[in-house]
């Protein structure tokens, strides 16, 4: 069977997957729940954190790499942010950039290992994933960092949550849009600028497409990798902050296995793990697809076990669909 012409456009294929999921939602709408804006608002709120991670993942995947450390960096940054703002009393204006810098430094470590020391991306980021998780637990002292502060005598004292928690977890526009959704869209916008407007964005594609040819053309491939992994780390920090404000605490276990969701989002949208091609728009579509899928399964009260199995099947189906049409 020859596919129709419009399916040869990658964008159309990414849209098709989303439309199929939406159609499923329109059929199994759980007594009209799927047609209420609140459902969509909540989906957009829930998909924000993995979506932000997927933005960074997309940049790294385009260079032909992979970043397994984003979930752990999210946890580390959530703990650090909670600690700095709740316990140390840092003002948000200082704590926010500090935590983002911490994440960027983590990513830059992967970037240096991969770009300069030629460690395979899978190994380098796997090592950082384990290290950052350990560091998060070390900083948190095995506790969740929340408004309940453990006193030396063993009792808890409750301190007020700083206002940044309310501001970032707010619902805006008459309660119709979550603030973290806007943060996610901001990250999509930053990635779009990097990939399509900056010279370095072009270097990411060239590095992933053919590193040798890029080097012969004077492309600074080491720096391009450093930028991709550094930005991925910074996005993971932003996701960590969003996670902390939503949970109102810094949990050292936050973000476990989120890197896999981020990869799934990037790939389901149509980015190729082989590197050298891709777009942030694919990732946005992938985030919506995964987000709606989760939401539809949850409003229909599908058991967690079936949900996981279904998600696995759908990821494979979506990726096979993409490839079938490419030939």
């Amino acid at each position: 069977m020859k596919p129709p012409g419009w399916l040869s456009v990658p964008w159309m294929r990414a849209f098709l997957a989303l439309l199929l999921v939406l159609a499923v939602g329109a059929v199994w709408h759980a007594d009209g729940a799927f047609f209420r804006w609140n459902t969509h608002r909540d989906m957009l709120r829930q998909v924000a954190v993995p979506g932000i991670l997927a933005c960074g993942m997309t940049l790294v995947i385009i260079t032909g790499g992979i970043d397994l450390a984003v979930g752990s960096i999210l946890g580390l940054c959530a703990v650090t942010f909670a600690l700095l703002t709740i316990h140390c009393g840092w003002p948000a204006i200082v704590a926010l950039p500090a935590v983002v810098l911490l994440g960027a430094a983590g990513g830059a470590t992967s970037g240096t290992l991969v770009g300069r020391l030629r460690v395979q991306p899978f190994i380098a980021t796997l090592a950082l994933m384990v290290f950052a998780r350990g560091l998060a637990k070390f900083i948190a002292g095995g506790q969740k960092i929340s408004a309940a502060v453990l006193k030396p005598d063993g009792t808890f004292a409750y301190v007020a949550l700083p206002p940044v928690f309310q501001h970032l977890d707010a619902r805006l526009f008459g309660g119709n849009v979550a603030a973290v959704t806007l943060v996610f869209l901001g990250c999509v916008a930053v990635s779009w600028v990097v990939l399509t407007q900056l010279r370095y964005g072009r270097y990411l594609f060239a590095t992933g497409g053919n590193e040798e040819a890029a080097r012969y053309s004077g492309v600074p491939v080491t720096h391009a990798r450093l930028l991709a992994y550094g930005l991925s780390g910074a996005f993971a920090a932003v996701a960590g902050i969003c996670q902390a404000v939503q949970e109102q605490q810094g949990d050292p276990e936050a973000g476990v296995a989120y890197e896999l969701t981020a990869i799934a989002i990037a790939v389901i949208g149509g980015n190729s793990l082989a590197g050298g091609r891709g777009a942030i728009g694919f990732t946005l579509l992938g985030a919506l697809t995964i987000g709606y899928l989760e939401k539809i399964l949850s409003i229909n009260a599908v058991a967690q076990s079936s949900r996981l199995m279904l998600t696995g099947v759908i990821i494979v189906a979506a990726v096979l669909l993409q490839r079938r049409q490419l030939n």
């Binding site: 407007q197 010279r199 964005g201 060239a206 053919n210 012969y216």
Partner: peptide, 26 residues
């Protein structure tokens, strides 16, 4: 030589990109 994943246009300009960017923006 070739970067097979990107367009003809972008392959042509790859080695001269600094010429087409101002402040890092293409």
């Amino acid at each position: 030589g070739l970067v097979p994943t990107i367009s003809v246009e972008r392959n042509i300009t790859l080695a001269a990109l600094p010429r087409f960017s101002r402040g890092g923006f293409l």
